[in-house]
Simulated scan of single mutants.
Amino acid sequence: MLSTLEVGTVVIVGMMVGVEFSVAFVMNRIFSALPDDSNQAARSHGGRMLGAVMPFWYFGSLLLTAIWAVAGWGSGTGLVVAGAALLIVSVVMSVLLLVPINNQGKKWTAQTRPADWKEQMSRWDRYHYARVAVIVAAFVCLAAALV
């Protein structure tokens, strides 16, 4: 049962990392190459869609990791605890830095976006790169703990 939890947690965290990596290094670059109205519309739509899903994915990943740490306590759980700590950092970063920008950006239209919308999206991107680095590190810890 513990091995199923371990593998499931690594798979779920790994898929989350893949989505967030794709947003950072693929999707946002594609969006930025579009004309401003299309770029902003794509980012707003992505903010609404992923903004609805990602909180459950982040908290679910953290919960699974915490359960793994407790269930496997004593048998080399240091990497699991480190992974959980990094996931906590990613949740705090999300709530304090990324969500406030996303909550504004997901409501914008071509007619209602502020003049500095590109600067706000650039700030979101920088925070997101840092968050991706944190969750990649968490994933590495969990994958190493699995091995």
Rank of each mutant, 00 (worst) to 15 (best):
M15P: 04
D37E: 12
Y127D: 02
F25K: 06
I101W: 10
W124E: 00
K107H: 15
V70Y: 09
T77M: 10
A24D: 14
C141Y: 11
V19P: 00
W57A: 09
H45L: 12
V11F: 13
G76I: 04
I101L: 11
F59V: 12
T112L: 07
V19G: 05
M1Q: 10
A52P: 05
G18L: 05
Q120H: 11
V136D: 07
P55L: 00
A143R: 12
L87G: 04
V92S: 08
K106Q: 14
V80L: 03
G47Q: 12
N39V: 00
F56T: 04
G46M: 15
I30D: 09
L79H: 06
S61Q: 05
W117T: 00
G105H: 13
S94A: 14
W117F: 08
E20P: 01
G14C: 02
A52G: 14
S44D: 04
A133E: 10
V92D: 11
E6W: 07
V53R: 02
E20C: 05
V95Q: 09
V91L: 11
R126F: 04
A138V: 09
G60R: 00
F21L: 06
V10K: 02
V70S: 02
F21K: 05
L96Y: 14
A110V: 02
D116S: 10
G60D: 10
W124V: 00
R29D: 13
F25G: 13
R113Y: 06
N102D: 06
